[in-house]
Design a protein around this nucleic acid. Structure first.
Lengths: 198, 198
DNA sequence: TCGGTATGAATGAAGG
DNA sequence: CCTTCATTCATACCGA
């Protein structure tokens, strides 16, 4: 056990990552994962040859579905709400980001047809997805960026600061990283990508 | 009660990253950069159409910006779970009990502002809290009177219990990503894809 | 360290 | 479109 190592680093101060920093790194990595996924997907759609699945998500621990149900048929007969497959999600994000803006009833139908190739889906699902997608992204805006870190922080810092040092979530072996943010829109992807580039 | 203290406490567990760990993360990011790059090249070669140039590899030397200027947008990233302080919790409970029932958007804002005096909090936190609070109390109801219809006995239990069981629900997003070994090439990438497919 | 539980957060779907 | 509900996921915390 080299637990002392970590203690050491902490005491060294400045040698450690804060939660915020780690979060940034996670996002960056997530961005790459998504980009890779997109690229594979794109490749598949263009080369129309034997497709490799766009799901790059390798399993962590015993987390992935042992293929039983994921064979492209989601357990519709099971129950409750529809969940887009990664492929479907990619396509939806693409369409959304294309700025087609308001998908008509006609458009919805097309999309649904297309997506049905990649899993069970209904037009209603598509419709709801777009509705929710828009509503959600709209609400994301006012959440951020106070001004600088001059004043607004003061209140916030006290509690959060203490927590920043804490947390983790089991990052003891950094061979794998978990990031829980399931939502990373393609538009964000691109913008972040640009950020990374410079 | 003393949750914040718990969180805050640096207890020697892997809560911080050492330089060494950071370096590994950097390498992992670099790996993704290379993979993306290779994918782009592959794509281009197969389809003489190039939406993006292959120069996606960003900071293989510059690495990341520790929440410097640009990324200040999320100082409190979507990552950790917010936990109400005891004071906040009391206030929230009070408001909930008051039967205001439906906190409007306006009301939410007020509450958030008020609570921010007692610790870090966002409007979203408040919103979620009320949502969860309501849902939870609702679910607790059928537990009290056992024989209502004569058949709904342990309904409440099963629902909550379910997640522990056979998960395997919609696991299609990038919520978990395993980093490839540093020398992972594109062929591995593709084989992973195939593996997931079948 | 491990497994269970409480609860914050994400999101599909329904209502208005 | 906007708001609300219901369900599920992921994580913090705690006890064995």
């Amino acid at each position: 056990m080299e637990r002392e190592m970590q203690n050491d680093a902490y005491n060294g101060r400045g040698r450690v990552m804060t939660e915020e920093q780690m979060e940034i790194l996670r996002k960056q990595i997530a961005v790459y994962a998504v980009i890779c996924d997109q690229l594979v997907l794109l490749h598949n759609s263009l080369s129309s040859y034997h497709p490799f699945s766009s799901g790059m998500r390798p399993m962590v621990g015993g987390y992935f579905d042992p293929m039983g149900s994921s064979s492209s048929s989601h357990r519709i007969s099971s129950r409750h709400r529809w969940t887009p497959t990664s492929t479907q999600l990619q396509i939806l994000e693409s369409i959304y980001e294309e700025g087609s803006g308001t998908p008509n009833r006609r458009r919805i139908r097309e999309i649904a047809t297309e997506l049905s190739e990649h899993g069970q889906i209904t037009e209603t699902n598509v419709y709801n997805w777009f509705q929710n997608r828009r509503a959600r992204s709209k609400r994301k805006q006012p959440q951020t960026t106070t001004t600088a870190n001059g004043q607004t922080d003061d209140v916030a810092v006290t509690t959060e600061e203490r927590r920043s040092c804490g947390d983790s979530g089991g990052l003891e072996s950094y061979e794998h990283i978990l990031f829980p943010s399931p939502d990373l829109g393609i538009e964000h992807l691109l913008s972040i990508g640009k950020f990374l580039e410079s």
